[in-house]
Design a protein around this nucleic acid. Sequence first.
DNA 1: AATTCGGGGGC
DNA 2: GCCCCAGAATT
Length: 335
Amino acid sequence: MPAKEFAKIVVTWQQQHGRNDLPWQQHNDPYHVLVSELMLQQTQVTTVIPYFERWLQRFPDVTTLAAAEEQEVMAHWQGLGYYRRARNLHAAAKTIVADYAAQIPEQAVELREIPGIGPYTVGAIRSFAFNAPAAIVDGNVKRLFARLFMLPYAVNHSANDRYFWELAEHYTPTSQNRRFAQGLLDLGATICKPKQPLCHACPLQSRCRTYANACVEDYPKRKQKKAIPTKTGHFLLAINRFGVCLEQRPANGIWPSLWCLPEVSQAPDAELGYEFNHTFSHYKLAGKVWLAEPATTTGNLMQVPYSDLADYGLPAPIRKLLAKIDWDEVCNTKQ
DNA sequence: AATTCGGGGGC
DNA sequence: GCCCCAGAATT
């Protein structure tokens, strides 16, 4: 299909049926685009919206964000996951203020040097913030192309990325690319969904090779991935009438820089109080929570009153575990 | 090229 | 339970 024809179909459909009321679409502000794109990396739109709104209230522009304290930046990301993105966004703001006079650059080579901005986000910022003719390839675009052209390339195999990028660049129009790029994402998210795609409502149905062959749901092809391992983690629950001991985790590894129950490398000589399970994308964590005395814990500790726990960006499984504990009862039995 | 980074939605 | 999500950085 000619590239111009493809672009016209996508642009026309986006105008009539696409998403045009998302919070970060309202001003085409490069900072809004930057914040939303970092938040949207591997995170669904409906999850991001409330975080985006709170973020803009506290950090309304790139200068405000650059001047903010790390701890406060992390607190506003709490619960969103992939916490490195928050540090990247903070570092990106500082870079933009220092090197680009607080103006987000438009050129790809400059954007690519900014922390947290990879190939996809370069294209997204150039498309959405500047309406520039830049390609984007994300999970939605790969799935759409894989089905439309019945591609045999597994979408979760990085060696195949070049095929999808070549297609995306071939079809990227020289005008109206903001709407075209949005249309690709909207088609993938609302029509060409992973499961139960709405082919009856698809503007590309007559062009779709997997639809013609009645094999839409067999695509995209996917490379089989290994089973994820299970790791055991040992955590200390040290409490008294003053509160619970929390420790700030190191900046690298799981839950970077978040406050958490102190973690130890092996099971201590103590009573096992609680257990929990948590599944990450790449391993399962079997958490053992040992009842310890506050004096036996070491490290970067802080004793936090139970009533203040909500102020600390606790990892989700830890937050849920602590929420189940009846503090009055624990204090009475422990004295 | 493979691994490491969360957490929630949806079925 | 499992797959998926507006991926990037690291090894």
